[in-house]
Design a protein around this nucleic acid. Structure first.
Length: 800
DNA sequence: CAGTATATTATA
DNA sequence: ATAATATACTGA
């Protein structure tokens, strides 16, 4: 057993296979599958994952593994299996799938280093630093001729080394301790100059309180600096050393411990089957459909409790934007230090430490966004996906996985149940629950006897006819005034998706477009620039229309800043907190703003998507949605579903406690079923209506989708290639399949590349992945040489 | 025909 | 992805 099967860190189709390496004697008893290693590859050194240790190989001359990067496997056997499966399912490289399961900090970085080993010309010497090394990059920038370096390397005067590093760093604190006994210290004390008061104080500390202490802490207690310490360290009386510590992003937060709450009847009814699956170790998938405020989280908490009691572990996925301190506190409050939290707001180091807590089994519960589904637990008892309908569970770049699919894979492996929770389930999940593939659990009413809020839909066209050109309807304005009088609070939601600010000429209707993409430029007020969100192009706002030279350039669209301004004009007495990307960029600002709102320091909370979820404030009795229909016109078959979900979620922020809630929805499409049915608060009618549409147009959940996007600088080339691909697909797939295209992508041009798509609708195509793989292989040369790009997305969430 | 740009190929 | 090697292509 001296051969390791290794996947190397070269994401390319040619290297997407397993390479065999000899295990050197020093690693013989150390190396295990799942470890990262450094291996020679060609004349470089690169990182790789050990998949397997074996005694067989087909290759005559094997190279040796150079060294290991881990002492504990980074990936468990389960995750290694998952990597294979995920690579196949998403048509990604094996290495890409494996990398996706680890924190960014564990990704390898590569450096080429020049080392001087002999006499070299002065000109070349100038590149090297004092220690006779130089980064290869430095050499390239230095302007010294390549030939000179080549010669020096040939002559053995310079060596080129390939260095592999991992980005992970471990945080340490400086500790102080002494090896001497109290008596010896007493003796030392008498030697210290009596005028060195602070030094004496530090020594006395070690006499009174023996044992190691953090330097920072000690110095602050005795109000002194490291200079006091120095003589003691120099004399060898005290010793300093660095102790590794875990970064704790939540260390200075006080979290009140909570006890399990008494469950309502329906909560108890929903919990029962979950507990049963946990106990019998059955891989069931539950769809927990509970209206907003119905207490889904308490059900999760009690299910997790059962898992922990059994000595098992739990993963809870929460959408990134809902991963607020409030949410985290609910889990930390119940399970304390057994919880690790993984989300994007943490620094790379913090994420790495949270991950290691899981790896070392120092925690039992992982709460996090999409990638937390890869938490390296080995005895999983349950996986919970909250807000399961959220599209952010689908990763948009390779590997394009859906966390729900990964959860089901892991659930099967561990014989553990999966709970998908939502007030507005995805049609896919609800349809599966109806068919009995998943088990349906319902929480039809709110806890605390709170009733569902009252709804009002305002047709903004009527407002316009009545001469109100403001972004606020009269009704909403009146209601907000009333709330301020009653000392109640309002949440205002501005849906900005598919809706951005742009400039338009009032005279001729000209809008400014990106010269490289077929898209209108977005107006950025802070910099007075027009920017393209797809390629980064920007230009200053023109003073005159580029088309007709009139000076009637105006801004359109509504940003939160604009709403805030209007609000202060119309309701000068209102105290407004605005939450958007700009005001929450700084770390902790999110929490600060919500905290202030929670304490009643503002009357109105104005925000985008980020306020749609999880907020739970007692005094919020009014929710206003400013542009309910802004998503409906997007080229997306899920537009109605997303609108319905969003309206239901936002409305769920109102009247969650004793005070009754009211919801006002402003829209230009009051008759659209997604708006109307959100008002009814009832999921089923919407589900049934939407299912009909999906059936007629042959969309999920009736059909599976695969989307191929082909792009090239040359429009004709892109179109023709897509045409050929369509024909190839038609030829090799079954005759039940529906293939659409070539169609120009909704974003027909990005970065000067024309984009065409082909959509495959299918029910059962076991060969699909193989056929696509063959097509990709067929175009391999063209992709490299002619810069043709082919993107494949199976079960896409974005059709752009 | 050397010297250099470009395509091909292997990476264990 | 990257580097070495094979091949094609300039300019003498």
């Amino acid at each position: 057993m001296n051969i390791a099967k290794v996947v190397v860190d070269v994401p390319a189709s040619q290297t997407d296979r397993v390479y065999d390496y000899l295990i050197p004697a020093k690693l013989m008893d150390v190396l295990q599958p799942g470890m990262r290693v450094i291996v020679p590859f060609g004349n470089r050194r690169i990182m790789g994952f050990v998949l397997q240790i074996s005694n067989r190989t087909e290759v005559d001359k094997l190279k040796e593994i150079q060294e290991t990067m881990d002492l504990l496997p980074a990936l468990t056997p389960e995750l290694l299996d998952l990597g294979v499966w995920m690579g196949e399912q998403t048509l990604s490289f094996h290495i890409t799938a494996l990398q996706a399961m680890l924190p960014q900090a564990m990704k390898a970085t590569y450096k080429k280093i020049l080392v001087r080993t002999g006499d070299i010309p002065d000109e070349l010497q100038s590149v090297f630093s004092k220690d006779n090394t130089a980064l290869f990059e430095q050499f390239e920038q230095s302007g010294v001729s390549f030939a000179m370096l080549q010669q020096a390397i040939k002559a053995g005067q310079v060596e080129l080394r390939y260095q592999v590093n991992s980005k992970e760093t471990k945080k340490t604190v400086r500790m102080l301790d002494t090896k001497q006994t109290t008596e010896e210290l007493q003796a030392e004390l008498s030697n210290v100059n009596p005028r060195a008061m602070k030094q004496r104080a530090l020594l006395e500390h070690f006499i009174e309180e023996p044992g190691p202490v953090a330097q920072k802490q000690l110095l602050s207690i005795y109000q002194t600096t490291a200079s006091t310490l120095k003589p003691l360290l120099d004399a060898g009386i005290l010793q300093a050393y660095d102790k590794e510590i875990m970064r704790d992003p939540y260390e200075d937060r006080k979290i009140e411990p909570t006890k399990p709450l008494e469950l309502s009847d329906s909560q108890a009814r929903a919990l029962q089957p979950i507990l049963k699956s946990i106990l019998t170790e059955k891989h069931d998938v539950f769809l927990l459909h509970g209206v907003t405020g119905s207490g889904k989280t308490e059900v999760y908490l009690q299910a997790i409790q059962q898992v922990l009691d059994k000595g098992q572990e739990a993963i809870v996925l929460v959408p990134e934007i809902a991963l607020t301190p409030q949410t985290v506190n609910r889990f930390k409050g119940r399970f304390g230090s057994d919880v690790a939290v993984l989300h994007s707001a943490l620094s790379a180091g913090e994420k790495y430490d949270e991950w290691r807590k899981i790896q070392r089994k120092q925690v039992k519960v992982a709460v996090g966004a999409r990638s937390a589904i890869f938490a390296p637990f080995e005895n999983l008892g349950i996986i919970i996906i909250d807000e399961e309908h959220e599209t952010s569970y689908k990763q948009e770049d390779h590997p394009k996985y859906h966390a729900r699919d990964i959860a089901i894979f892991r659930g099967k492996y561990h014989h553990a149940p999966i709970v998908l929770g939502s007030a507005t389930p995805s049609l896919e999940s609800y349809a599966r629950a109806e068919k009995g593939v998943y088990q349906m659990l319902e929480l039809p009413e709110r806890v605390n006897d709170a009733s569902m809020p009252d709804y009002q839909i305002i047709d903004m066209r009527d407002e316009l006819h009545a001469g109100n050109r403001s972004i606020f309807s009269r009704e909403l304005l009146d209601q907000m005034k009333e709330r301020i009088c009653k000392k109640e609070q309002t949440v205002l939601f501005l849906n900005r998706r598919g809706y951005s600010t742009f400039v338009m000429c009032r005279d001729c209707g000209h809008t400014v477009e990106c010269p490289h993409c077929d898209i209108t430029l977005t107006y950025h007020r802070s910099s007075e620039q027009l920017k393209c969100h797809y390629c980064g192009y920007e230009e200053p706002v023109p003073h005159f229309c580029p088309s007709c030279e009139s000076d009637t350039i105006r801004y359109f669209g509504t940003g939160t800043q604009k709403v805030e301004e209007t609000l202060t004009q119309l309701l000068p007495e209102a105290r407004v907190i605005r939450m958007d990307v700009d005001t929450t960029r700084r770390k902790g600002s999110h929490e600060k703003l919500l905290g202030a709102f929670g304490r009643g320091e503002a009357d109105i909370l104005l925000g985008t998507q980020m306020i749609a979820k999880g907020l739970d404030f007692e005094r919020v009795t009014l929710v206003g949605v400013l542009a309910a229909d802004s998503m409906l016109h997007l080229p997306d078959f899920r537009a109605a579903e997303k609108t319905f979900q969003l309206l239901t979620q936002v409305s769920g922020r109102a009247g969650r406690h004793a005070l009754p809630g009211e919801v006002i929805i402003q829209t230009y499409s009051p008759e659209h079923y997604s708006v109307e049915l959100a008002a009814s608060g009832d999921y089923r009618p919407f589900f049934q209506t939407e299912m009909q549409t999906r059936r007629v147009f042959q969309y999920p959940p009736y059909y599976y989708l695969a989307l191929l996007t082909i792009s090239h600088q040359n429009q004709v080339k892109a179109m023709q290639t897509t045409q050929t691909i369509v024909q190839l697909l038609q030829k090799h797939l079954s005759d039940q399949v529906r293939i659409l295209g070539p169609t120009p992508s909704p974003l027909a041009r990005i970065k000067d590349r024309y984009r065409f798509q082909c959509m495959i609708k299918y029910k059962n195509e076991p060969n699909l992945r193989d056929v696509i793989r063959r097509i990709l292989h067929y175009y391999e040369d063209a992709r490299k040489k002619e810069d043709l790009q082919i993107h494949v997305d199976l079960q896409p969430y974005s059709l752009m």
